[in-house]
Simulated scan of single mutants.
Amino acid sequence: MARFISGRAVAVTFGVLALTLAGGGIAAAQTTAAKPAAQTGQPGARPAAPAGQPALTPAEAAQAKAALQEGASPSFVAGSTSFAVVSAAGVLVRGHDAVSTTKYGPGQYQVVFNHSLTRGGYVATIGDAADCCIPPTGQVSVAPRLGTPNGVFVQTFDSTGAAADRPFHLSVFTP
């Protein structure tokens, strides 16, 4: 009678089976405690993140419109970069073409420029508002300001993803 499986193949097969079962047992023995939402890495998992942008008040809309009318200044050139450096308190420290800032709540800011930002691109980073120093850790997100063609909405977060006041640098690239 012919041998179909050698002794060595049987030993390797049982070894692989034993390791597979042992690995599965270890995986089953891991704790099943759920990780906090901020650690899951899933989109939209930030705790305590504001649901959306605050409503635009008539006064803010009028201020943004006035800034647009003044925006026909010679300082703006199509295809240029505008920027703003904003403190954690929401104060406009310095900038180019930036007109005003508004702080709405923890980590929520609006930055208004003197020209339309439609079809533009926004980039922000956590950064110290002074001319020195290392900024606090955190995260930042930017979006067009709803109802304001010359505004940008900025949200800042601490390292865990909770809304927090952070200074930031914002660059706006317009075509």
Rank of each mutant, 00 (worst) to 15 (best):
F83Q: 13
T137L: 10
G15K: 02
P175Q: 14
R166W: 00
G138D: 02
G95V: 11
T156Y: 07
S82T: 13
I5A: 13
I134W: 06
V142M: 10
A163M: 14
T102N: 05
V123I: 13
Q53T: 04
S75L: 14
A89S: 15
F168W: 00
A84R: 04
R8L: 12
V142G: 04
P135E: 03
N150M: 02
V93S: 13
F76V: 10
L117T: 01
F76E: 08
G24I: 05
V152R: 00
I134Q: 12
T102L: 11
A28W: 06
M1G: 15
A27D: 06
P36F: 00
G105K: 03
Q139V: 01
P149R: 09
F157E: 02
M1C: 12
A163E: 10
P54Q: 00
T20C: 13
Q63R: 14
A88Y: 00
I134G: 07
S141R: 12
P54F: 03
R145Y: 02
T101C: 09
V77R: 09
A61K: 15
V112I: 14
V93C: 06
G151T: 00
V112C: 00
T31Q: 10
T118N: 12
G41V: 00
A29F: 10
A59V: 11
Q39L: 02
V140K: 02
T101H: 06
V77L: 15
F76R: 07
G151E: 01
V154I: 15
Q30M: 11
P54A: 01
T20S: 13
A162S: 10
D97Q: 14
F153D: 05
P144S: 13
S6N: 14
T148M: 09
P58G: 05
A143W: 07
G151D: 01
G71S: 08
P74F: 06
A59K: 13
K35C: 06
P47M: 03
A28Y: 05
G90N: 10
T118M: 09
A143S: 14
V154H: 04
V99G: 08
C133Y: 08
L21M: 13
G24S: 11
I5C: 07
P175Y: 12
G147E: 01
A45M: 07
S75Q: 14
G138S: 03
P136F: 00
A29R: 10
A45L: 04
S159L: 08
V111T: 06
A11F: 09
G121P: 01
P50E: 07
S141E: 15
R46W: 12
G120R: 01
A51S: 10
G138F: 03
F83R: 08
A37T: 07
V10G: 05
D165K: 03
S87K: 02
P149E: 11
T156E: 06
R94C: 04
G23C: 12
Q139P: 01
V86N: 01
P167C: 01
V112R: 00
V154S: 05
P58S: 02
G79T: 05
A49N: 04
T81W: 08
R46V: 05
P43S: 10
V10M: 15
G95I: 11
A11G: 03
